[in-house]
C-alpha cells in the first residue's frame, strides 16, 4: 500500500468513525462491501451459513459477522529459567563420549594454563595428585593410555555419570587448597565454595501456584479465574477501532495490573478458539458465538496483581502445560495446546 493511500485510509477512517462497523484490519484489507439489500437478505437466512459437513467453510458474508463476537486474549508466559534435567541415558552417553575423547586427545599441558611455581600451579598439582594423576575431573579413575584403557564402559548401577556427582566434584575442585604462604592448606583451613541455588525452590515445596519462581525448568502460563468461576486466559472484546495486539495489551493491563515488565511477541495471534452461535427454533439468533484470538506474551519481571481489575477476575495461577490441561476445558485446551512448548 502506497504511503499516500495509507494516509487517505486513516483520514477516511476518522471521518466515518461514527457509523463504522468494520474492524480495523478488515478495513485496511481488500474488502468488497455488500449492498444494503443483499445484507438484509443474507441476515434473513443467516442460519444457512453455518458450517456444515458438506460445506465446512461457508462463504463469508456481512451477516455472518453479526453472529460472532471477536475477542482478543493474551497467553502470558514465563520462559524456563533453568536447563532441563538430563535423562540417565544422556548422562551415560556423554560420560562414555568423554572417556573415548580421553583416549584420543593430546595430553593436557598444564603449563599453558598455570605459570610455574605459582599458587595456582601448586593448587592444581595437589588436586591432580588426588585424582590419581588424571587431568580430567569427571571421568573417574580411568587411565586412557594405560593397560586397561579398553575397559571404558560403565558397569550397571554405576553412579559415575550422575549429574549430581559431577556437580559435587566440580564444587570440591573449586576450593582453594593453597594458603597465603604458598603452602598446602590444612583440611580445617579450606573454605568451601558457595553452592549454586537449589533447582527446587520454596514455591515448589509448598506448591504455591501464584508464585513465579516455581518449576524453574518449565514454561509457566498465566491463567485467570473469571467471575463465573471458569479458568481461562485473560480476554476481552475487540472494539472496531483497535487491532488485536492493542486489545491484548489493554486486556493484560486491565486484568493483571501494570506491575509487570512484559513483551508481546509479534502482532499475530498464536491460537484461536471458536464457539459456535446458538439459534432458536425460528432460526433467530439465541446466543452469539465467540472467536477468541490469543496473542503470546513474555513476562520478564513483576507479578500479576488482580486488585481492582476491570474484568471481574477472582484469582490467577502460574501453571505448566500439564497443569493447564486439568484446569481448562477440553475444547479450550485443545485450541491453545499447539502454541505451547514441550518444556
Amino acid at each position: 500500500m502506497a504511503a499516500s493511500s495509507r494516509g487517505g485510509n486513516a483520514a477516511s477512517a476518522l471521518l466515518r468513525r461514527g457509523q463504522s462497523s468494520i474492524c480495523a484490519s478488515c478495513r485496511s484489507a481488500q474488502f468488497r462491501p455488500y449492498s444494503a439489500n443483499a445484507e438484509a437478505a443474507a441476515t434473513a437466512e443467516a442460519h444457512h451459513l453455518k458450517p456444515t459437513e458438506a460445506q465446512p467453510h461457508p462463504p463469508f458474508t456481512a451477516s455472518r459477522r453479526a453472529e460472532y463476537r471477536i475477542k482478543s486474549g493474551i497467553i502470558l508466559t514465563r520462559a524456563p529459567l533453568l536447563t532441563r534435567n538430563l535423562t540417565p541415558f544422556e548422562n551415560a552417553f556423554f560420560f562414555y563420549q568423554k572417556r573415548l575423547n580421553e583416549r584420543l586427545v593430546l595430553p593436557f599441558r598444564h603449563t599453558l594454563f598455570y605459570k610455574k611455581d605459582t599458587a595456582a600451579d601448586l593448587d592444581w598439582r595437589i588436586k591432580f595428585e588426588e585424582r590419581g594423576r588424571i587431568a580430567a575431573k569427571d571421568i573417574g579413575r580411568y587411565y586412557a593410555q594405560g593397560r586397561n584403557a579398553w575397559n571404558d564402559e560403565l558397569l550397571v548401577g554405576s553412579t559415575l555419570s550422575d549429574e549430581e556427582r559431577i556437580r559435587e566434584i566440580l564444587l570440591k575442585d573449586a576450593e582453594n587448597r593453597v594458603t597465603e604462604d604458598g603452602e598446602e592448606a590444612d583440611p580445617d583451613e579450606i573454605v568451601p565454595v558457595e553452592r549454586p541455588m537449589d533447582r527446587i525452590t520454596e514455591a515448589d515445596k509448598t506448591n504455591d501456584v501464584r508464585r513465579l519462581d516455581r518449576k524453574l525448568d518449565r514454561t509457566l502460563y498465566l491463567l485467570v479465574q473469571g467471575s463465573d468461576g471458569k479458568w481461562q486466559f485473560p480476554s476481552e472484546d475487540v472494539p472496531t477501532d483497535e487491532h488485536l495486539h492493542e486489545t491484548a495489551t489493554r486486556v493484560l493491563e486491565s486484568a493483571a495490573g501494570v506491575n509487570m515488565n512484559t513483551w508481546i511477541v509479534g502482532r499475530v495471534p498464536v491460537a484461536h478458539l471458536v464457539t459456535q452461535p446458538e439459534f432458536n427454533e425460528d432460526t433467530s439468533l439465541k446466543q452469539k458465538g465467540e472467536k477468541v484470538f490469543f496473542l503470546k506474551g513474555r513476562i520478564m519481571a513483576g507479578q500479576a496483581d488482580l486488585n481492582g481489575n476491570k474484568l471481574g477476575l477472582q484469582d490467577f495461577n502460574w501453571l505448566t502445560k500439564e497443569e493447564l490441561k486439568e484446569k481448562l476445558s477440553e475444547d479450550y485446551f485443545h485450541s491453545v495446546r499447539n502454541m505451547m512448548a514441550d518444556r
Binding site: 520462559a79 524456563p80 532441563r84 538430563l86 544422556e90 556423554f94 518444556r343
Partner: peptide
C-alpha cells in the same frame, strides 16, 4: 568423540527462542 553435553544456549534456543 562427542557430544559431551547439551549446551545451555541450546536449551534456551529450543525452549523459548525458536518459537518466538
Amino acid at each position: 568423540p562427542g557430544p559431551f553435553n547439551l549446551p545451555r544456549l541450546k536449551h534456551t534456543f529450543h525452549s523459548s527462542v525458536a518459537s518466538d
